[in-house]
Nucleic acid binder design. Structure first.
Length: 243
DNA sequence: AACGTACCCTGCCGGC
DNA sequence: TGCCGGCAGGGTACGT
């Protein structure tokens, strides 16, 4: 489910509650999640985000690295089904994940660096230099999903950003002019910020410009939004605004 | 190196 | 009502 904005919103909820808390116990209900390694007694120093990853910095030089993938989420309210739980002095964080594709693991600083080094720039943390995109012949929509090129954009915000920048999703990445790339960078930042501004209401309230709106009128020009499939993922765009 | 495809999992939705 | 195929906003491991 979650892309950068949803992850940011979650981090904003987690940080004030978990930072400075001490871990009292950890619980895994799924053999794929291993949380041993002496977590108990460590203090949570910081909860932060890089791309779609959640990084929890612990005292004593260990980190919890969480990736929600499609259906992962973290709640403080006890859930019927959860894959894992972190019990702390300031409450319990429950990791739920219906499809069980998400990842929660304990990593050393070296392992964390290795994982984060693979990521391209995070548009909100590192700025949106998209020069890497000029080095690939793949369609721009497909390239935007590659986390090594830009970290945090997923299927929804790729469509949304391209609509905002008026760029056709099928364009070869290496055919984009520098002006178009700058516009795309601004569009990505704007789309992500707009979504984050919804806060926890994002799942009820958010209105997408094109995503999921096949056959409905473009909010800019009224033309029917079209859907196409690119590397097995849905893309939505306005054929008139995005020539 | 770079691209495409298969696969990992489960829940939900629409059609029959 | 019940079953079934298709679909889902993620990433990775392969093969070419």
């Amino acid at each position: 489910m979650p892309e950068l904005p949803e992850v940011q919103i979650l981090v904003n909820q987690l940080a004030p509650r978990l930072e400075r808390a001490r871990i009292r116990a950890v619980e895994s209900r799924d053999p794929k999640i291993k949380l041993d390694r002496h977590l108990v007694g460590r203090r949570i120093r910081r909860v932060r985000r890089q791309g779609k990853n959640i990084v929890v910095d612990l005292s004593g030089g260990l980190h919890l690295l969480v990736h929600l993938r499609m259906t992962g989420w973290i709640e403080f309210d006890r859930l019927k089904r959860y894959r894992a739980a972190i019990h702390t002095t300031r409450g319990t964080a429950y990791f739920e994940d219906a499809r069980r594709l998400g990842v929660m693991q304990v990593v050393t600083p070296e392992q964390l660096d290795r994982a984060l080094k693979k990521l391209g720039p995070d548009p909100l943390l590192d700025g949106c230099g998209l020069s890497e995109l000029q080095a690939t012949s793949r369609p721009i929509k497909v390239a935007l999903l590659d986390q090594r090129l830009v970290a945090g954009v997923g299927n929804i915000y790729a469509s949304e950003s391209l609509w905002r920048a008026r760029i056709n999703p099928r364009r070869r990445s290496d055919s984009l002019q520098s002006g178009e790339l700058r516009a795309l960078g601004r569009a990505i930042v704007a789309s992500l910020r707009r979504a984050i501004a919804y806060g926890p209401r994002i799942f009820e309230a958010q209105q997408f410009a094109v995503y999921g709106r096949k056959g409905r009128p473009c909010r800019r020009c009224g033309t029917m939004i079209r859907r196409l499939v690119q590397s097995q993922r849905s893309t939505y765009f306005c054929p008139r605004c995005q020539r």
